[in-house]
Structure formats: structure tokens, C-alpha cells
């Protein structure tokens, strides 16, 4: 039996399962009629796949784009006040010391590792210059940011467990927090020791927790 028109298209586009691809190839090998029907299709898809995928604009678009981005940035900087509910204020007052410390640690890591997002968006120009390619820097920043997010989630989970008064759950939560902390730190230490953006992240975090007097960068963590 000959291959259907749909089969020929699926075969030419590589959309058949591996088993069906092998069967179709064997059939085409043996069947002159199907091979003749498939030939122009195969030639077309091969030529389309070989078309260049990059092209130059007639004029440089960057100056106009730069202006648009500056406008975007100005409109994004309008401050938004956050209303804190009465319940939330009450919760904050009643937060025990250990929970406050955990929340403070979360803030530090959010600042520190969340800073990866800044690197990705261009704030840490130094990091972009130091990296081999722009793509490498942005992808590295995204990994750091993800590690930071996981750490913050683990801290939040730990706080929830501890509040529940279940010491076993709290111990497990603490373990998860430490594991996330380790992962986040490992990502951060991949940055070069003299990387100015990494130093700035440490300084921002230290300022947030202890004030400007303690803003000198700590030595990199050792594992």
C-alpha cells in the first residue's frame, strides 16, 4: 500500500514517530511511485530549512528603541504605596523573635539573590562586560535568581512549620531551608570573587540587615 499524502507531508516534516519514520523510509526505498511523489516535497522542506535566519535592518533601530526604553523606565519608576492591613500589622507586632529573624534572612537573600534579576535586566553592567557573552551573563543571573526564590520559599515554609508547634516538621523545614541556602550560596559563589556586582549584592544585603556601618562585603562562604 502506498503512503498517503498526509504521511508524505509528515515524513518530509519529521513529524512521524521513530517507528513510522523508519517504515516510511523503507517504503520509499522500495516504491518508485511514492518516491517520485515525495521528491519535490523533500526538496522543498530541505531548501526551506536551509534559509538564513538572521537579517540586517536597513537602518540602526537602536536609537529609537533606546528612547522607547527610557520612556518605559520612567513610567515604571512611579512609586506605588502599599496599604498594610490592620490584621497584617497585628501579625507583625506578634511575630516572635525567631520568626522575625527568619523573615529578615529571607529579605537579605531576596535582595542578594534577587539581585540576579537586576543583572539580567542590565543594572549590573559590570557583570555583563565581565561575562563571555551577554547570554551567559543573563542565564547565570536567572539561575542565581531562581536559587534565591527557592531559598525564600523554603524560609517561608520553615516559618509556617515552626508556627504550627510541630518540632519534627520545624526540623525538616529548617533542613530544607539550609539546603536551599546552600544551593543559593553555591550559585552566588560561581560569580568571580572580584565581580563588582556580587560585591554590591552583599553590600545591599548587609545594609538592609545591619545598616550602613556593616556594609563591607563579607568573605565568600566556604563549603
Amino acid at each position: 500500500m502506498h503512503l498517503s499524502d498526509d504521511d508524505l507531508h509528515d515524513y518530509a516534516g519529521g513529524e512521524l514517530s521513530p517507528r513510522r519514520m523508519a517504515e516510511a523510509a523503507a517504503h520509499l526505498e522500495a516504491c518508485d511511485a511514492c518516491r517520485a511523489a515525495a521528491a519535490p516535497l523533500m526538496a522543498l522542506t530541505a531548501r526551506l530549512a536551509a534559509l538564513p535566519r538572521a537579517g540586517d535592518t536597513a537602518a540602526d533601530l537602536w536609537p529609537a528603541l533606546h528612547t522607547r526604553l527610557a520612556e518605559e523606565e520612567r513610567s515604571a519608576q512611579v512609586p506605588v504605596a502599599r496599604v498594610i492591613s490592620l490584621d497584617e500589622r497585628r501579625t507583625r507586632r506578634m511575630m516572635p523573635a525567631w520568626a522575625a529573624h527568619a523573615a529578615a534572612a529571607a529579605v537579605v537573600f531576596t535582595l542578594g539573590f534577587g539581585g540576579g534579576r537586576l543583572s539580567g535586566t542590565g543594572d549590573a553592567a559590570a557583570m555583563l562586560v565581565a561575562a563571555d557573552t551577554v547570554a551567559t551573563a543573563v542565564e547565570a543571573a536567572a539561575r542565581v535568581q531562581r536559587a534565591g526564590t527557592e531559598y525564600v520559599a523554603a524560609v517561608a515554609q520553615f516559618v509556617a512549620f515552626a508556627r504550627g508547634g510541630d518540632s519534627l516538621a520545624a526540623a525538616r523545614g529548617r533542613q530544607a531551608t539550609l539546603a536551599a541556602c546552600y544551593g543559593a550560596s553555591r550559585e552566588l559563589t560561581r560569580l568571580r570573587a572580584d565581580d563588582t556586582s556580587a560585591v554590591r549584592l552583599f553590600r545591599t544585603a548587609a545594609t538592609a540587615l545591619h545598616g550602613p556601618a556593616h556594609a563591607a562585603p563579607p568573605p565568600p562562604p566556604v563549603f
Binding site: 511575630m95 529579605v107 531576596t110 537586576l118
Partner: peptide
């Protein structure tokens, strides 16, 4: 759990 208040701060920072 308490929500880290500065979670969205980096996204709002100048670029």
C-alpha cells in the same frame, strides 16, 4: 507565613 516585603523590589529598580 510572613511575605518578604522586598520580594518585588529588584523588578522595580532602575535598569
Amino acid at each position: 507565613p510572613p511575605e518578604p516585603a522586598l520580594l518585588d523590589a529588584p523588578a522595580a529598580a532602575p535598569r
